[in-house]
Amino acid sequence: MTDLRDTTSSLPEVPLDLADLAVRQHGSPRHLLSVADLGPQGITDILRLTDSFVEVSRRSIPKVPALRGKTVVSVFFEDSTRTRLSFETAARRLSADVMTFSASSSSLNKGESLKDTVLTIQAMGVDALVVRHSGSGVPWQVAGWLDGPSVLNAGDGWHEHPTQALLDCYTITRRLGLDPEEGLTGKRIAIVGDIRHSRVARSDVLAFTALGAEVTLVAPPTLLPPSLAGWPVSVTHDLDRLLPTLDVVYVLRLQRERMLEALLPSLREYTANYGLTRRRAALLEENALIMHPGPVNRGVEIASEVADQPGSVITAQVSNGVAVRMAVLFLLLGSGVDLASA
């Protein structure tokens, strides 16, 4: 691994080409697999549509008949509380029928393959599969097998979690009161913590930079990916110096369940160097946002008081998540609108 100690400087020119994203956005939005498929305009369009669904969620009857007669299945091969509930709530608020598949109580235990499982679900006549799997790329594989239903990636391994990135973009732009056309232009965002194991970080980097933000990753070298070639970000290990310059500090969960090797000397040392403690939170500008994708390890990556202080938008992220997922489901299943021509 390269020495990353003095790298507040940006990385060299990167192969991740935003012009390429602009080309890809003209593809049909039948599936939502990666943030990269949307492009800056696609992301902006979804955020705009989300405003309408935030309004729906505020009503006394927060339900519209837009997806009546459609069936959405959540197919989760990995544990989840908020993402699954959020998708299911979103589908119900659009009047879709919702089925839940959970791997632990399925015929997978009798040896049925992944392919047979999703083909069985398709044969029941569903319109969308919301897929989470611990293997990177599984939603792509599933989308390739299916013929008809939409596939929504609800998190695949360490790879991507596109709806999380969309709800994060929504939360930031609306909380900071930004012009939808300008996106995140010039905003400084730090993503702190376990980048290596984080699909949220990968999708967020794609989405934030697509909207024009300057993204800095902050993590111990052991929790950074083996190579950052192609990431349009800078890297630092000095959180204290960075904090006063930030518009958003995005704290990631320390994913202890994915750590197969000893990557950290101790949790206390991690908290001392990279945790968002009360002392560090005081270094932030008054209007800066504190974000976390949940679930929160209170006292590890973020102090309990900091998670609950006024600048923290962690619960807003969750409620915006429902509206963002309504927008995505509506776009894929209900509107008949090509994102590129809408």
Partner: peptide, 22 residues
């Protein structure tokens, strides 16, 4: 009032993100 989510011909008419219910 925007009725885009209530129509029986969803899919035929584009949704205008700026047309909001208030």
């Amino acid at each position: 009032l925007d009725v885009a989510f209530y129509r029986d011909d969803i899919g035929l008419r584009p949704v205008l993100p700026e047309a909001a219910t208030n």
